[in-house]
Amino acid sequence: MKVTIEENEETGKFTIKVKTEDGEEKTIEIPKENLEEILAKLPPNVEII
């Protein structure tokens, strides 16, 4: 699983794009305050880009 994290400076939010092993892609946008909480919940086999 690969996770790409991009900061949107205009909105102050982060866009998180997840690509699973089977090629499925999902995108979510979260507030900056929630980034550490989300990262802590990721499984250890995740590659963060």
Rank of each mutant, 00 (worst) to 15 (best):
I5H: 01
V3M: 04
E9K: 15
E36S: 10
N45F: 09
K19A: 08
K19I: 14
I5S: 01
I5W: 03
E21V: 11
N8M: 03
K41G: 11
E24C: 14
E9A: 13
V3Q: 00
E36I: 12
I30Y: 03
L39I: 06
K41D: 06
V3K: 01
T15W: 12
I16S: 00
L42W: 06
E9S: 12
E25W: 15
N34L: 15
E6C: 14
F14P: 01
E37D: 10
T11G: 08
I16N: 00
E36K: 13
T4F: 14
T4H: 06
E36V: 09
E10Q: 11
K41C: 15
E6F: 14
I30D: 00
E25G: 02
E37M: 13
E33Y: 07
V18D: 00
G23N: 03
E37T: 08
E9L: 12
L42D: 00
P44K: 10
V3D: 01
E36Q: 13
T4C: 13
T15D: 02
L39H: 00
T15Q: 06
E21R: 09
K41P: 00
K2Q: 11
E36G: 10
L42V: 03
V46G: 02
G12I: 02
E33K: 06
E24R: 09
E24D: 08
P31C: 12
L35E: 00
N45R: 05
E29A: 04
T4A: 03
V3P: 01
D22F: 10
N45T: 07
E9F: 12
G23I: 01
V46M: 06
T27D: 03
I30E: 00
N45M: 07
A40P: 02
E36P: 11
P31M: 12
I48P: 02
T27M: 10
I49Q: 06
E29M: 09
K26L: 14
L42S: 00
I38F: 15
L35F: 05
K19V: 15
T15L: 10
E9D: 08
E10Y: 12
E6S: 10
E7T: 06
T20Q: 07
E29F: 09
E6V: 11
E9Y: 12
E10N: 09
T20I: 06
V46K: 02
L35H: 01
D22Q: 07
E9P: 13
L39D: 00
T27V: 13
E24I: 11
K41E: 06
K32G: 10
V18Y: 15
E7A: 09
L35K: 01
T20N: 08
E6T: 13
P31I: 09
L39N: 00
L35D: 00
T20A: 06
F14Q: 01
F14I: 09
T15E: 05
V3H: 02
K17Y: 14
E21P: 11
D22S: 09
N8C: 08
I5N: 02
I30S: 03
N8P: 01
E21W: 14
E47P: 05
T15P: 01
I28D: 01
E10V: 11
K19E: 10
E25N: 03
E21M: 10
T4D: 02
M1C: 14
L35V: 05
I28S: 03
K41S: 11
K19C: 13
G12R: 04
L39V: 03
L42H: 01
K13S: 12
A40K: 11
N45G: 13
E29N: 06
V18F: 15
N34H: 13
I38P: 00
G12D: 04
M1K: 02
N34F: 14
E33S: 08
I5G: 01
E37H: 08
K13Y: 13
E33Q: 07
N34E: 14
N34D: 14
E10D: 12
E21S: 12
N45K: 04
K13I: 14
N45E: 07
L42F: 12
E24K: 11
E25T: 10
K41A: 11
T20M: 11
A40Y: 06
G12K: 04
A40D: 04
T27H: 08
V3L: 07
K2H: 07
T15R: 11
F14M: 10
D22W: 09
E33P: 03
L35I: 06
G23P: 00
N34C: 15
E25D: 04
G12A: 02
G23K: 02
G12H: 05
E37P: 04
V18Q: 01
T27P: 01
T4W: 15
E33F: 08
K17T: 14
E9N: 11
E9G: 11
T11K: 08
E10G: 08
V46Y: 11
V18E: 00
E33I: 05
I28T: 05
P44G: 08
K2F: 12
E10P: 03
E29H: 08
K32V: 06
E47V: 12
V3T: 01
P43L: 09
T27F: 13
P43Y: 12
E47I: 14
K13P: 01
E33T: 06
E7P: 05
L39R: 02
E9W: 12
I30F: 08
T4M: 06
T4Q: 05
K19N: 06
I48D: 01
N34M: 15
I16P: 01
T15Y: 12
G23R: 00
F14D: 01
E10F: 13
N45Q: 06
K2G: 03
E33M: 06
K32R: 13
I30P: 00
K17A: 04
T20G: 10
V46Q: 03
K32T: 05
T20S: 08
V3G: 01
N45V: 04
L39Q: 00
E47Y: 09
K32I: 08
T11I: 03
T27G: 03
I28E: 04
I38D: 00
I49G: 03
K13F: 12
I38L: 14
D22A: 07
N8S: 06
E9M: 12
E33L: 05
M1H: 03
K2C: 13
N8L: 04
I49D: 04
E47Q: 13
V3I: 12
I48R: 03
I49L: 09
E21K: 09
T27K: 05
E47T: 12
V46I: 09
E7Q: 09
V46E: 02
I38G: 00
I30V: 14
E37W: 14
E29T: 12
T11Y: 04
K2A: 04
T11D: 09
I48W: 14
L39A: 00
T11N: 11
K41W: 13
E24P: 04
V46F: 09
A40N: 07
D22L: 06
E29K: 05
K17E: 02
K19L: 14
E21I: 11
I16D: 01
P44N: 08
I5Y: 03
T15S: 06
K17W: 14
K26Y: 15
E36L: 13
K26E: 09
G23D: 02
E29C: 13
K41H: 09
I16F: 07
E6P: 00
E10H: 11
I38E: 13
E6Q: 09
E9I: 13
K26A: 08
E21C: 14
